[in-house]
Design a protein around this nucleic acid. Structure first.
Length: 637
RNA sequence: GGGCGUGUGGCGUAACUUGGAUAGCGCAUCGGGCUUCGGACCCGGCGGUUGCGGGUUCAAAUCCCGUCACGCCCGCCA
């Protein structure tokens, strides 16, 4: 795999290994240990790469660190003559060995690498040949996406993009939970509350749901009729089942207008009612039964239920509750049971008895959206994953653990280990929670906390700036540019914080386009692009002489950072943390900001060609990695 | 009671998995910079005993033990 920064570390490990054997034959150190000692010097001017290995060797041999570094540096000088000229100098500094990289060779590696790979620079092959399912955002089909759901959708979209760039074959699934009391309550509202939809359907339905819940607190009799609806919803073909599906489908279509605005697409919708209808549940339960993990107590607390004992399950040793119900005494399976079946299906362990139909003809990515649908056709289109990534809120950590534990008991520990729960913290607002039931998302100052409203407000602000901008001459283009800027601002704002952290939403931050932000990255991109346009940049043929011009540290810092792109992507992918990429991009933007201010490009004389290549590199890398995060670049701003 | 997560300048956050040099960045604040490739920018200042107490180590925001605070979870719900 092409990765300049990794190449440096690998070369350094080789050199250190050789040097250690030469200087201290008695010391045994694995390559991994040596690699872990390598870092980048934090002090400015202390070189390009550094190792603290001397401390360890000092400990093992009883020699002082500076004696060790001295001997190692001697050995390295020998090695350099024999094997590599990637490193220029090696100096001792307080027990560390600081090395400088040969600017010319390294710059050539990085810039040639970018010019060769272009829109694929930064990609890796760590997931090559593997199929991964990403489940997100799975919003209930009776409300609009609010900013909390949006966080989920954006994480899912970004991780899908990152994994895709890492060579995985990514399938994006959106699970639609169209059964259960929540939906029954909405259906009660549709049937009994006055008034017809007078706004975007998901928003209308979400508001109805809040009204139903208000009434439910006063009217005791309602509960029974909602339970009645809930029961009938699970009877295929019943009036309520049909109405529920219709209502939910209409709501999901409205939600996908939001998705389209945000440039988010999926491959397939999986409906909970279809998991029931396609009998996945029965299959899964019979497998569980055959494995002997099910119990059906005749008496006691769980009389009449089908349960599984978790006390011997991996990872559940310390949990108080060691019994998990799968089928209630009334014969209805619960959510956990459906989730087990669903995940067996995801891995292709039970036959795909779903039927599929097209749900939307064309999404933001130009592709149709499919959906499980009893009226559709069979087809082996989906599932069969090697790995599953579930973007689910932290409040469901325990149920994700339970899911894995039960799969483990069923002898499917190998697939349980390949389910990754990307747990993310809740989004709240200053005044409290975004509860769908209480209507916390509705807001009270005309600005609600729906994803739609957020985009509208932020686009409004961006448009104001664009209309007043002297840089955007063609004002007809301003609204489209403003939307692009707004999307970058919103997406970056959510993606830049670690998933596990809670987010308290603030309009002030959302409407600020300065500093560590999407627009700042985008601005870097457009400035780079503009330089290339002015210089009438064409595919350069960089010569030996051009690379001699990378003399200044500021030039080289930028090149080094460009050389780290693959490692940033790889890390973001393996840790499932998009904020690793936003951090990388902010560093890139800052380095380019300084470079732009201090290093003339077009009038860069002898350095002009190589700096143009660097500017091209910045534009390419910025664009490529923003795309992975699900952020489209604008061409001017 | 138990489990998971979080705690870093006034505010927001990075680095914690794999210990390493002066804890990085932004907002706010104070000061400087547009006849120059685009000021949604750049340069500089102020601001930190990394919740608290121990321990391990040449070295701790990072690892271990304890403790406090906040959030979430521990249902025949979803």
């Amino acid at each position: 795999m092409f990765s300049p920064s990794r190449k440096v570390r690998e070369e350094l490990v080789k050199m250190l290994k050789w040097s250690i054997i030469g200087a201290y034959p008695e010391v045994k150190l694995e390559s991994e240990a040596i690699e872990l000692s390598i870092s980048e010097p934090k002090r400015a001017g202390a070189g390009d790469v550094s190792t603290s290995i001397a401390f360890r060797i000092s400990k093992m041999t009883g020699h002082y660190p500076h004696q060790v570094t001295e001997k190692l540096i001697q050995q390295m000088k020998l090695y350099k003559m024999l094997a590599t000229n990637l490193f220029a100098t090696a100096t001792e500094d307080n027990g560390y060995i600081n090395l400088t990289i040969n600017h010319k060779d390294y710059s050539r590696m990085v810039l040639d690498g970018i010019l060769e790979r272009k829109e694929f620079y930064g990609f890796t092959d760590m997931g090559k040949g593997k199929r991964v399912i990403v489940e997100s955002p799975s919003v209930n089909p009776n409300k609009p996406w609010h900013i909390g759901h949006l966080r989920n959708a954006l994480l899912g979209d970004a991780l899908s993009g990152i994994m895709s760039a890492s060579g995985y074959n990514v399938e994006r699934q959106n699970y639609i939970d169209d059964l259960g009391l929540q939906i029954a309550e909405s259906i009660w509202g549709v049937k009994n509350l006055p008034g017809a939809p007078d706004k975007k359907y998901d928003t209308w339905l979400g508001e109805q749901y809040v009204l139903v819940n208000k009434r439910l607190k006063e009217d005791q009799g309602m509960e029974a009729s909602i339970k009645e609806i809930n029961k009938r919803m699970e009877e295929p073909g019943s009036e309520d089942a049909v109405l529920a599906r219709q209502t939910a489908e209409r709501c999901v279509k409205a939600q996908y207008e939001t998705a389209a605005d945000y440039g988010i697409s999926h491959d397939v919708l999986i409906w909970e009612s279809d998991i029931v209808g396609a009998k996945l549940l029965e299959t899964a339960l019979s497998i569980a039964d055959r494995k002997g993990v099910l119990e059906k107590p005749r008496e006691g607390k769980y009389a009449g239920c089908t349960i599984v004992k978790l006390d011997k399950a991996k990872g559940m040793e310390n949990q108080l509750e060691d019994t998990k119900v799968l089928v209630r005494s009334n014969g209805a399976a619960n959510y956990t049971a459906k989730d087990i079946a669903f995940h067996m299906w995801k891995f292709g362990l039970i036959e795909d008895t779903f039927k599929y139909a097209q749900f939307l003809e064309r999404q933001a990515n130009g592709k149709p959206l499919y959906s499980t649908d009893p009226r559709g056709d069979a087809g082996p289109f989906f599932g069969h994953a090697d790995k599953v990534v579930n973007i689910i809120g932290e409040e469901q950590t325990y149920s994700q653990l339970t899911l894995k534990a039960v799969l483990g008991l069923m002898g499917m520990g190998d697939i349980a280990d390949r389910i990754v729960h990307v747990s993310y913290g809740r989004v709240s607002v200053e005044k409290g929670s975004l509860s769908g039931r209480e209507g916390g998302w509705i807001g009270d100052d005309g600005k609600s906390y729906t994803a739609d409203s957020l985009l509208r407000e932020v686009t409004g602000k961006a448009n104001e700036i664009a209309q007043n901008s002297k840089k955007i001459i063609d004002k007809e283009k301003a609204p489209a540019i403003a939307k692009g800027i707004a999307l970058s601002a919103i997406k970056f704002e959510f993606l830049k914080v670690s998933p596990e952290k809670k987010v308290v939403f603030s309009w002030e931050r959302a409407l600020n386009f300065e500093g560590n932000s999407g627009p700042y990255c985008m601005y870097t991109y457009t400035r780079a692009k503009r330089i290339l346009e002015k210089a009438e940049y064409k595919e350069p043929r960089l010569t030996d002489k051009d690379f001699d011009m990378v003399g200044r540290q500021m030039d080289f810092e930028l090149i080094k950072h460009l050389g780290r792109a693959q490692e940033a992507v790889e890390k973001a992918c393996s840790e499932a943390r998009p904020n690793i990429l936003t951090d990388y991009l902010l560093d890139l933007a800052m380095l380019f900001g300084s470079f732009y201010e201090h290093m003339p490009v077009i009038k860069g004389e002898d350095a002009r060609e190589v700096r143009l290549a660097m500017v091209f590199g910045v534009m390419q890398v910025m664009g490529n990695l923003l795309n992975m995060l699900g952020i489209d670049v604008v061409e001017s701003m």
